[in-house]
């Protein structure tokens, strides 16, 4: 236990928390519009595979991130089409997207298994390197990391301070009232799904392009489902999602650090920590959560349109 350990813990927490934050923010937007999307896991996989493939082919990781965001957004249209246009069951629609993502990512990524890339360029926070206890790794991140919290604030601002955000939340709370007030329910749901897929696509790309710098089948390891859990934990609020994402990132990093130190505990047991922590957090925070959920979450809106 020394400064290097804590430095590693801090930077790891941030690095592993960031993709989860983007995913959770996407799901917050979707659920605020009344849509529970369990397909996030599939979108993450699509983002990761497309991001990695494009990075290798073009040699430019930023093109990879852009392509992943686009692919995620377009792909989530499948979900929006089923839920908003066909008014299908949300759970089954989400699993459709999950199955699609698992299959298509495996086909896209097949040619690139085992490949490696340099990843996103990292930038040191100016000035802090001069501080005595700071190790070189501590304030040295890629651009997506620096953008994560501003994006969370942006999502909050859009949801709570713009007309569009108000309409979106109205659709999630009470679609009939929103319809009576002249909002176009379907259109808003499509827009929310696009935003959700866009953010999840970025998250997937961050996993493969910046974090792992490689592609393996099923590399997201249930992060899409963890994000759904973190949305509940954050009470559908984008800023509280930051806390949730950091908590999960911290758990992942702690177990990695303990493994690296040779803590004498099986890596299998340590690997459970993030999932058990997510479950535990949900249990502890369960009180009064019911009232925080959007009123029409998960419901099929069958009103006239």
């Amino acid at each position: 236990m020394n400064w290097a350990f804590f430095g590693g813990l801090l930077s790891g927490t941030i690095m592993y928390g960031v993709p989860l934050l983007y995913t959770t923010l996407g799901e917050v937007i979707g659920q605020r519009a009344g849509m529970v999307n369990l397909g996030l896991e599939g979108i993450l996989l699509i983002g990761a595979s497309v991001g990695f493939a494009v990075s290798i082919e073009t040699g430019n990781p930023w093109l990879g991130v852009g392509a992943a965001a686009l692919a995620g957004a377009l792909f989530n249209l499948v979900y929006a089409f089923l839920v908003a246009t066909r008014r299908a069951n949300q759970l089954a629609s989400g699993l459709t997207v999950m199955f699609f993502g698992m299959g298509i990512s495996a086909m896209v990524g097949r040619a690139y298994v085992g490949g490696g890339i340099a990843g996103l360029a990292r930038y040191q926070v100016p000035g802090v390197a001069a501080l005595p206890w700071v190790t070189r790794t501590m304030f040295n991140y890629d651009l997506l990391v620096y953008l994560a919290v501003p994006v969370a604030v942006l999502v909050w601002w859009v949801l709570y301070r713009t007309r569009w955000g108000l309409s979106l939340r109205a659709v999630g709370e009470n679609p009939s009232a929103a319809f009576a007030a002249g909002r176009r329910i379907s259109a808003l749901k499509y827009q929310a799904a696009l935003a959700c897929g866009f953010l999840a696509g970025i998250a997937g790309a961050h996993l493969s392009v910046a974090l792992a710098r490689t592609w393996t089948e099923g590399m997201t390891g249930g992060r899409g489902f963890v994000a759904v859990a973190l949305v509940i934990f954050s009470k559908w609020h984008p800023l509280r999602a930051i806390v949730g994402a950091l908590l999960f990132g911290g758990a992942v990093t702690l177990q990695l650090q303990l493994q690296a130190m040779g803590a004498g505990v099986s890596p299998f047991l340590l690997n459970m920590i993030p999932y058990l922590l997510t479950l535990g957090v949900l249990l502890v925070w369960s009180g009064a959560r019911r009232f925080a959920a959007p009123g029409a979450l998960g419901r099929v809106y069958s009103g006239e349109e």
Binding site: V78, F81, L82, R86, A88, N89, A92, S93, L95, T96, V97, M98, F99, F100, M102, G103, I104, S105, A106, M107, R110, E217, G218
Partner: peptide, 22 residues
Amino acid sequence: GVPFAAVNVLMALILFVVLMKP
């Protein structure tokens, strides 16, 4: 040489058709 996970695409397509045309 199609990866095994590709069966997920077929499963998704079945689900998609049913959800689209219940």
